[in-house]
Design a protein around this nucleic acid. Sequence first.
DNA 1: CATGGTGTACTAAGGCGTTAGTACACCATG
DNA 2: CATGGTGTACTAACGCCTTAGTACACCATG
Lengths: 131, 131
Amino acid sequence: MFDINPSDPAPIWKQIEEGLRRLITLGTLQPGESVPSVRDLARDLRVNPNTVARAYQRLSDAGVLAVRRGEGTYVADEPTRPNRAHRTEVLRDAANRYASAALSVGVQLDEAVAVLEASFDKLVAVHRRKG
Amino acid sequence: MFDINPSDPAPIWKQIEEGLRRLITLGTLQPGESVPSVRDLARDLRVNPNTVARAYQRLSDAGVLAVRRGEGTYVADEPTRPNRAHRTEVLRDAANRYASAALSVGVQLDEAVAVLEASFDKLVAVHRRKG
DNA sequence: CATGGTGTACTAAGGCGTTAGTACACCATG
DNA sequence: CATGGTGTACTAACGCCTTAGTACACCATG
């Protein structure tokens, strides 16, 4: 489905939340489609079920996922889209972290852009492979 | 000198380490030049001296900073440069995080590149202002 | 020599993330 | 109705990060 990076300082529940949002915006997960159960995804990612549950609950509160009690969790029929303010904030923060990391190891803008394109291609390719 | 982002999941000592490496590679801090004392930088960043000390010690172990006991800490005469393997690893990881964040909020490559350029410009501008 | 600033070391406490284990209410299925 | 899978909730424990406080050895300065 997607990968978790244990060495990433970002919390695992946040990586799961981001990964699911990514698959939804890319169309890999479509409205009404079911997502893996808490226990299944936890086993798949080699992570504790509580951590997955935390991500699912946050996405449900945000209106991205919909829970049918006793049955399972599904992508909402009309998944909530982040507004412009939140989107630009997330993007600027992430860009600052990337630029800082690049400059700290002596990498210029052009090379940073090239590597960024490769990362984009890889993630979109995962999308095309349906998982 | 540089900024610390308390909401960044990355440890503060790592942000300090990265910030100093960035200023050195940009030339804002030149070989032989002195860096602020542990207590001064801690007061400046509103952070505990222990946290700054941790970053200084790691940079000293890496050969980027040189400590003169009882006197202060300085940029090494020939600061160690990260090798290609480490550089590409850091860059790829950071690029993956940025690409993932962008796609999770529905941002395409072109917009992500534009925002990245802005971040680069901002950091380099800080460099030109000598701090 | 006395003072003050330097890096360094140590302990104690609190917060957050993660894991582990257990338990419950819910619902589809047979 | 019994079973099994679903999300959810709770406690306990561990580790890492951070803060706070104290203390030490070192050295430049006056």
